[in-house]
């Protein structure tokens, strides 16, 4: 489904600040996989997502999505097949426009000059009611008035409105309070399962990483240092993960956020 072959990315090439952010990364994600990705800050998780989504071109290597080479496709073209959520709930929606208008853009129906129909309105309403946040009664409100959790849930709805081939979740619940985060995660999980979306999720929460999905990758220093799925994964505990990280990278995972959660 998603086939990444030997991609490399160096930031600030040729200067003293040069940083090898992705070091010959290869990974093959199967259709319907839900992969959680963990790793310390600066390990290259977000860089990997940026490379897949097309925020920049990689220096070398190829990226294939569903058998099609997208290595050099522009970001907005890849967005047709790749949905993406960021940690910052403000990133995925236009605050000055209404909920309905945001959804209309995400749905992308009709030609350039088409207007919203009553049918679209009813469809948006129905979709929004699935979030159970009461957003279906606030469709004419500007998105800027919503809370972070509501905005993130709306962004999720928008990113998956036309079922994407691949969904990239970049710590999309990290900025939310625990209760809201859990709710958004639950919605995420149900949308992914219902539509059979292939999904990559970066998380700092070790238990989430093991609970959700069917495969876990661990990254460090621009490399994938550990890749586990199936039965072996289901037996893993958080302390196993910590130990594995230490063995593979020679460092201790010293992130409080990872330890505490």
């Amino acid at each position: 489904m998603l086939k990444i072959t030997k991609i490399t990315k160096v930031f600030n090439k040729g200067t003293v600040d040069a940083k090898l952010a992705l070091d010959n990364v290869s990974v093959d994600i199967k259709k319907g996989d839900f992969v959680s990705i963990i790793g310390a800050n600066g390990a290259g998780k977000s860089t990997l997502f940026n490379a897949i989504a097309g925020s920049f071109y990689t220096d070398s290597g190829t990226i294939e999505l569903d058998g099609r080479d997208i290595t050099l496709a522009p970001e907005h073209k890849r967005a047709k097949q790749i949905g993406r959520l960021f940690q910052d709930p403000l990133k995925g929606t236009a605050p000055g426009m209404t909920i309905e208008e945001n959804l209309a853009l995400a749905a992308g129906k009709g030609g350039w000059l088409s207007l919203l129909s009553k049918k679209d309105h009813a469809e948006f309403r129905e979709k929004l009611s699935l979030l159970e946040m009461g957003l279906e009664d606030r469709m004419q409100h500007p998105v800027g008035l919503l809370s972070g959790g509501q905005r993130q849930a709306l962004t999720l709805m928008m990113a998956t409105y036309n079922t994407p081939k691949l969904l990239l979740l970049d710590e999309h619940t990290a900025a939310l309070d625990p209760a809201t985060a859990e709710k958004v995660l639950r919605i995420t999980n149900s949308i992914i399962e219902e539509n059979g979306i292939t999904c990559l999720m970066v998380t700092h929460n070790m238990s989430t990483a093991l609970e959700l999905g069917n495969r876990t990758l661990m990254m460090d220093n621009g490399k994938i240092i550990y890749d586990v799925e199936g039965e072996k994964r289901s037996k893993l505990t958080i302390s196993d993960l910590m130990k594995l990280f230490k063995e593979a990278s020679g460092k201790v995972l010293d992130n409080d956020r990872m330890l505490l959660s």
């Binding site: 907005h76 000055g96 426009m97 030609g111």
Partner: peptide, 29 residues
């Protein structure tokens, strides 16, 4: 007032509001 409610008009408004979001809606800002 009609144009800014069409899909293209919405995309133009979103471009001034949040260009990243326009890209993720598969539209070139």
């Amino acid at each position: 007032s009609v144009f800014l409610r069409t899909k293209l008009g919405l995309a133009i408004r979103a471009t001034g509001n949040n260009p990243d979001m326009v890209k993720s809606s598969s539209i070139n800002p």
